[in-house]
Simulated scan of single mutants.
Amino acid sequence: MSNRNSQGSKQAARERIRAERERQKKKERLRRQLVVAGAVVGVLAVAGGIGFAVLKANEPTGWEAAKEARQIAPAHTQGKDHTEILIGDPKAKETMEVFEDVRCPACAAFEQSTGSALLKDIHDGRYKVRFTMYTFIDGMQGGEGSKNALSALGAALNVSPEAFLKYKSALYSAKYHPDEREDLYAKDSELLKVAADVPELKGNKAFETAVEKGTYDRWAMDMTALFGRKGVKGTPTFMHGDKKLVMDQIPQDPRMTEAQYSQLAKANFEKMIDKEFGPAKGKNSGGDSGKSGGKGIREGEKDPTGAH
């Protein structure tokens, strides 16, 4: 073999080796680039996942989320945020305000002993009643029964004012009203069980769906925000304009029967009402006491108290 051929072969071999090395280098650079790119994508994906998880964790839930939801107001309401529940004969000149909390034991005691007298005055057109429903016991005792029951009352009010009044009475009844420390009304099933005693609500699929879906949860939260309205922070409270009405105290007597207590409570309520609004003019004065409930507010009617 000549020296020229030998040198040519060596040169060719070196070129092949150099070309192979370049190919390997390019391959390695590409591999590293892919690894880095994959790592960046992975980091971004993890970061995005963490960010999404943090956002989800910080999103309000339950009743806090209800505050941000779009409000669906029940029928037969008016005023700012539709939080005015005004029931009675629109022609009645006077308006009494009643402040209650569904979990309140004192409210239940009033309803069980004297609720019928209040309803009679509404039916007779003696005055209209604006109901302001609070939920402060949920905060005091823990739980959400007041808010959940208020949302269900919104569903009942959407059916009719009569259904609202009857359902409220049933929720306060001795048959169903729980100890305030027991958050029983947080359960939709319990609220629907109570509703089965109200003819307008029994088997009413629209009402049941509204309770289960929390249709009026946002409305209930808007009602909750009224706490402290007119300085009222306890229930039950009765007001005429800016005047707080006060009933005589019932003497504490362990020998008093439930019937005697109810009789005294009703007499004290009627005395308070007579003093403020004057004696009743007759059993059916100003209205038809045979009706099952008061009329709802008329569209555009203003709250006679001028309050919000």
Rank of each mutant, 00 (worst) to 15 (best):
K187G: 11
A163G: 04
E190C: 06
L150M: 12
E144R: 10
S160Q: 04
L191C: 11
E144K: 12
N148G: 03
E182C: 01
D138C: 06
Y176F: 15
A174V: 12
K168T: 11
A156K: 08
V159K: 08
F136T: 03
Y176H: 15
A155M: 04
L153P: 05
E182R: 06
F136G: 01
E144C: 06
L150Q: 11
S160C: 05
K166M: 10
K147V: 08
E180Q: 12
L165E: 15
E162D: 13
V159S: 05
D179Y: 07
Y185E: 02
E162T: 15
K187T: 13
R181H: 15
D188A: 11
A155D: 05
E144S: 14
N158L: 00
Y172R: 07
L157T: 01
D138H: 04
F164S: 08
D179A: 09
Y176L: 07
D138F: 02
K147D: 09
T135V: 14
D138L: 03
N158I: 00
N158E: 01
G145V: 05
H177L: 09
A186W: 06
E190I: 09
A155G: 12
A186Q: 12
S160E: 04
L165A: 15
A149G: 02
A174E: 15
G139N: 14
S173C: 10
K175Q: 14
A155V: 04
G154M: 00
E162S: 15
L171T: 08
P178E: 01
D138R: 03
M140W: 11
N158T: 00
R181N: 15
S173D: 09
S169V: 01
A170E: 11
E144G: 10
V159A: 07
L153H: 01
L165I: 14
G143E: 03
F136Y: 12
Y185S: 03
G145C: 07
K147L: 14
K187N: 14
I137F: 13
T135G: 09
L191Y: 04
Y167A: 08
P178Y: 04
I137V: 14
P161H: 06
S169E: 11
D138G: 04
D138I: 04
T135R: 10
D183W: 00
K187S: 14
S160V: 02
D188C: 09
A174D: 15
Y185L: 04
T135F: 02
P161L: 05
G154Q: 00
D183T: 04
S160K: 02
S189Y: 00
K147R: 15
G154P: 00
S160H: 03
Q141G: 08
K166D: 11
A156M: 08
G139P: 09
Y176V: 08
Y167I: 08
K168P: 07
Y167E: 07
E182M: 08
L165C: 13
A156Q: 07
R181Y: 14
D179F: 07
Q141A: 13
L150T: 12
